[in-house]
């Protein structure tokens, strides 16, 4: 089934000159195997076609259940000359979490409360959903 990465993984991005870099992290080992298989350079290049003018590099890290991703020539030459609102590429990881991949329907993480599909008008995280009191509560 098609699954948005946001349901099964977390991610952070940053900048080094003209390079945007992303760490993509599975919450568990079965999900990591799916990420390694599905998050390919070709799919990333297509997903980031509007910003990435260079090559895409990836390194899987078994010890961290993580995939390191680098988008070369993706920040309009770098933050100090970028015209974009996201000059530092901080939201590039959010863009990645919007990517859809093929995942088995019985992937354990998919039954986690935070992985529940969000419909239009969904109120987002809540105490009931996260099983935690929230910072705002």
């Amino acid at each position: 089934m098609k699954v948005g990465l946001w349901r099964i993984a977390h991610a952070r991005s940053g900048d080094k000159a003209d390079r945007a870099d992303i760490g993509l992290f599975a919450y568990d080992a079965p999900t990591y195997e799916v990420l390694k298989r599905e998050v390919t350079r070709e799919r990333l290049a297509a997903h980031f076609a509007d910003i990435c003018q260079g090559t895409v590099e990836i390194w899987p890290l078994d010890n961290l259940l993580a995939v390191k991703i680098v988008l070369n020539a993706a920040l309009q030459g770098g933050a100090a000359r970028s015209l974009r609102m996201d000059s530092l590429g901080k939201a590039v990881a959010a863009r990645l979490l919007r990517m859809e991949i093929e995942a088995p329907a019985d992937l354990p993480r998919l039954s986690h409360p935070s992985a529940r599909p969000r419909e239009s008008g969904d109120p987002g995280p809540s105490k009931e959903r996260t099983g935690f009191p929230l910072s705002r509560e």
């Binding site: 946001w6 952070r12 990881a93 935070s114 987002g124 959903r129 996260t130 935690f132």
Partner: peptide, 12 residues
């Protein structure tokens, strides 16, 4: 800046 959907809100 714990980049995630939902999980960030658990940070106390």
């Amino acid at each position: 800046n714990f980049g995630s959907a939902g999980e960030w809100a658990k940070v106390q």
